[in-house]
Design a protein around this nucleic acid. Structure first.
Lengths: 191, 191
DNA sequence: AGCCGGAGTCAACATTGTTGACCGAACTTC
DNA sequence: GAAGTTCGGTCAACAATGTTGACTCCGGCT
């Protein structure tokens, strides 16, 4: 490898410019020329460095979550903790999530979203649960979690958006807790 | 209005061709020229009839739901009925839902999705509920319902997709029922 | 007959992602 | 030090996209 001066910084510029634009404007509404302009370089270089706009998107749009709050909390508070985590997911995560959802018309982006859902929500929850239906409960809870983000950010439910954070945490926490550790084992009560 | 022979049928051809293509391939992956070819006409005519690709999309992608199953079921079976309704939503509805979700990067399509979510899920449920927090419960149930479609169709959770329909109905029905008509009024147990 | 309004056709435009040809500089090799 | 190779950068071009304008054509009105 040759000159490390301008090359790495240019690639880095393209990367961060693309990340910011994809987050704020989504996949289809950001153009390669915009990315190049923001990075102060040429559209052709963007493609040269990252092969295609789609690969650049996949390389920049990673959604990560800090597992630990879910792993070190007592099991009976897992629902509440997950609700807090979801509602504290800030601006950057919101942009990445929406970009993935909107872009997932593209097959590769859909794969990325599938993987993200799997090991961002399902896996950590699955690890805390036991019993024969642990997998189903983890997946259901993940679906409920995704449903919250969907309602807030994708569908944009104004009623939920205007709600008090504390009440949302309390309600969704209880709901998730019921899914994760059901109060009654499904069957009819036997007193 | 002049010749009604070829004109209406052409407009109709464009409409149905666009609907089919948008449903199966989404907004960004279907081109105006594809629509024109499928309808056996000229790309320029597509625009002339519907002003723009986006307006054509909005005119064709309507997601409707039969309210009655939700309105005539006894309240204590509303959750189960809603779960059945969601899981029976067939191929055409799936395509429209996904097209709306994927396309909602576009502001007008986002508005359409917001309205659809509101008066497809929230409104019918809201109408069945009473009490001070009826609105919140309806919106939460709608979020859970949207979460199921999100997990199945958008994220593509293989674990849920492979599940038995009856078990999914049973589980999600109970979950939705708990949201709609909570078992305990929120407070801690007093034995 | 003569006009007029709308349907249809064709060519063009700007913008998109992407590619290929060329240039220059820096490092390797003799 | 000279030659060569490899990579970053620039520019022009390509095909495909949504959209527009000019033009034709035809049915129904005055």
């Amino acid at each position: 490898m040759l000159q490390t001066g301008s090359s790495v910084s240019t690639r880095e510029s393209i990367h961060s410019a693309a990340a910011q634009l994809f987050r704020s404007r989504g996949y289809s509404r950001t153009t390669v020329r915009q990315i190049a302009a923001e990075a102060g370089t040429d559209p052709a270089l963007v493609i040269r460095h990252f092969k295609s706009k789609e690969l650049l998107f996949l390389e920049t749009m990673h959604l990560t979550l800090d597992d630990e709050p879910l792993l070190d909390v007592p099991l009976e508070r897992l629902g509440e903790r997950l609700a807090e985590l979801l509602l504290d997911l800030g601006g950057s995560a919101r942009g990445v999530f929406l970009a993935l959802v909107h872009g997932s018309n593209e097959p590769h982006i859909h794969d990325r979203l599938r993987d993200t859902h799997e090991h961002l929500f399902v896996e950590p929850l699955r690890r805390r649960l036991t019993g024969p239906d642990a997998d189903v409960r983890a997946r259901t809870a993940a679906a409920v979690a995704g449903g919250l983000l969907y309602a807030l950010w994708v569908a944009g439910d104004q009623g939920l958006l205007r709600m008090d954070r504390a009440e949302l945490v309390s309600r969704y926490g209880a709901l998730l807790q019921d899914v994760l550790t059901p109060r009654t084992p499904e069957g009819p009560r036997t007193p």
